[in-house]
C-alpha cells in the first residue's frame, strides 16, 4: 500500500472536524473511504482505551488488513506529527470565531497539516 495515510481529527460527540488524505492519495475512491471507515470503527476502541491509560499517544491500537490505526488523544483532542498538529489545533481553538466542535474549514490549517505530514510520514 505504500505510505498512504488518512488523518482525521474527531471532536467530542464523534464529529470529524478535520479530514485529510495525506501521503500518497489512494487512486481508488473506495480505498479512501475505507480509511475513514476504519478510523471511524477504531473510535470504539479508542473510547474504551482512553480511560485505561494515561498516555496520549496510542500506537497501533487497531488494524484492519494492512491498515494500522494510531491515535493521539488530547485533553480536548509519528508522535511528533501528532504533537505538532495538536499545537495547530490549539491555535485554531484560540480563534474566537471557531466554535469548538464544529468543522475546521481553515485552509491555513489544511496547508500546515499537509506540510507536517510530508515532513514526518
Amino acid at each position: 500500500m505504500g505510505s498512504t495515510a488518512c488523518f482525521v481529527m474527531v471532536s467530542k460527540n464523534d464529529i470529524p472536524i478535520y479530514e485529510a488524505e495525506v501521503g500518497i492519495v489512494p487512486k481508488k475512491e473506495d480505498a479512501a473511504h475505507q480509511h475513514q471507515f476504519i478510523l471511524h470503527a477504531a473510535l470504539d476502541i479508542v473510547q474504551d482505551l482512553a480511560w485505561t491509560t494515561s498516555a496520549m499517544f496510542l500506537k497501533a491500537i487497531d488494524r484492519f488488513n494492512d491498515l494500522v490505526v494510531s491515535v493521539y488523544v488530547t485533553a480536548v483532542l509519528c508522535a511528533s506529527f501528532f504533537q505538532e498538529v495538536h499545537e495547530l489545533y490549539i491555535k485554531t481553538l484560540l480563534n474566537p470565531l471557531y466554535l469548538p466542535g464544529s468543522r475546521i474549514t481553515s485552509s491555513h490549517f489544511d496547508t500546515k497539516v499537509r506540510a507536517l505530514a510530508r515532513k514526518y510520514l
Partner: peptide
C-alpha cells in the same frame, strides 16, 4: 451538537 453527533459525512 448532540443532534449532529457522529456525522461522518463521507462515510
Amino acid at each position: 451538537v448532540s443532534l449532529f453527533e457522529s456525522q461522518w459525512s463521507t462515510l
